[in-house]
Amino acid sequence: MTGEVRNIHDALASFTEHWQPRRLVSINDYDVKVVKVQGEFTWHSHPETDELFLVISGELVIQLRAGDVTLGPGDVYVVPRGVEHCPRADGEVAAILIEPQGTVNTGDTPSARTAQLRELD
C-alpha cells in the first residue's frame, strides 16, 4: 500500500461493525488500523508490544488496573507492553490503532471479540 493515498474518514465510513479493525496502511513492520468501538471490550494485555490508540471521534476509556484513562478526539495514549487493559466506549468511537503486524486485538486473552484483521473494501 505504499504510495497510495488513504483517507481516514472515508475508511471509517466504509464499515459499521464494532471491534472489527481494518488495516488502513502498513509501514515497515507495523499496521495502522481504523476501528469503530462501542461497549466494553475484553480485559487483555499484549506481552510483546505497546499499543497506540488515537481517538478520531467520541470518548474512549482505557480501563487499567491502576485507574482509567479517558481519551477524546485528537487524544493519543500508548498502553505499555504487558499492561492489562480494557477499552470501553459508552457511545460509538472511531479510532486509529498502531501495532506490529500480526498483533491480535484481544492479545493474550482470546474471546468472542477476537477478530481477524480485515482489509478495507
Results as ranks from 00 to 15, higher is better:
Asn28Met: 10
Thr70Arg: 15
Cys86Gln: 14
Asn28Val: 02
Val61Cys: 11
Val34Lys: 06
Val83Tyr: 06
Thr42Asp: 14
Lys36His: 15
Thr70Pro: 03
Val79Gln: 04
Gly91Leu: 10
Val37Lys: 11
Thr42Ile: 14
Trp43Glu: 12
Glu92Ala: 09
Ile27Met: 04
Gly67Val: 09
Ser26Val: 09
Val61Met: 12
Val93Cys: 06
Val69Ser: 03
Val83Cys: 02
Asp31Thr: 03
Ile62Gln: 05
Val79Gly: 03
Lys33Gly: 00
Glu48His: 13
Tyr77Cys: 05
Val76Lys: 09
Glu84Gly: 02
Cys86Lys: 15
Gly91Glu: 15
Gln63Val: 00
Asp29Trp: 10
Asp68Lys: 10
Val78Cys: 13
Val55Thr: 09
Lys36Ser: 06
Thr49Gly: 01
Val93Arg: 13
Pro87Val: 05
Asn28Ala: 12
Asp75Gly: 04
Arg65Thr: 03
Val78Ile: 15
Asn28Asp: 09
Val35Asn: 10
Lys33Cys: 08
Phe41Thr: 00
Ala66Gln: 13
Ile27Asn: 00
Phe41Asp: 01
Arg81Cys: 04
Leu52Lys: 03
Val83Ser: 02
Pro80Leu: 12
Ala66His: 10
Gly74Glu: 11
Leu54Gly: 02
Leu64Ala: 01
Gly82His: 10
Val37Thr: 13
Gly74His: 12
Asp29Lys: 15
Pro87Glu: 09
His85Ile: 02
Val93His: 12
Asp68Leu: 07
Gly67Met: 07
Asp50Cys: 12
Asp90Arg: 12
Leu60Val: 06
Pro73Gln: 08
Asp50Thr: 11
Val55Gly: 05
Tyr77Met: 08
Ser57Phe: 10
His44Asp: 00
Val78Asn: 08
Arg65Cys: 02
Val69Phe: 04
Val78Gly: 04
Leu64Trp: 06
Ala89Asp: 02
His44Met: 02
Val79Ile: 14
Tyr30Met: 12
Thr49Asn: 10
Ala89Glu: 02
Thr70Gln: 07
Glu84Pro: 02
Glu51Gln: 14
Gln63Thr: 01
Asn28Thr: 05
Glu59Thr: 15
Pro47Leu: 14
Val79Arg: 08
Val34Met: 04
Gly72Asp: 07
Phe41His: 14
Gly72Gln: 11
Val61Tyr: 08
Tyr77Phe: 15
Ile62Leu: 14
His44Arg: 14
Gly72Arg: 14
Ala89Thr: 03
Ala66Val: 13
Leu64Phe: 10
Gln38Ile: 15
Tyr77Ile: 06
Cys86Tyr: 06
Gly72Glu: 07
Thr42His: 10
Ala66Gly: 05
Ser26Pro: 08
His46Thr: 00
Gly67Gln: 11
Lys33Gln: 11
Glu40Pro: 04
Leu71Tyr: 09
Ser45Phe: 01
His46Cys: 00
Gly82Phe: 11
Phe53Glu: 00
Pro73Asn: 07
Val61His: 09
Val61Gly: 02
Gly91Cys: 07
Gly58Met: 12
Phe41Ala: 00
Trp43Ala: 02
Pro73His: 08
Arg81Met: 12
Val61Ala: 07
Val78Thr: 15
Gly67Ile: 06
Val76Thr: 15
Pro87Tyr: 09
His85Val: 01
Thr70Ser: 11
Val34Ser: 03
Gly91His: 13
Val79Phe: 09
Val76Tyr: 13
Gly72Trp: 11
Val61Ser: 12
Gly58Lys: 12
Val37Trp: 08
Gln63Met: 10
Phe53Asn: 01
Gly58Asp: 05
Val32Met: 05
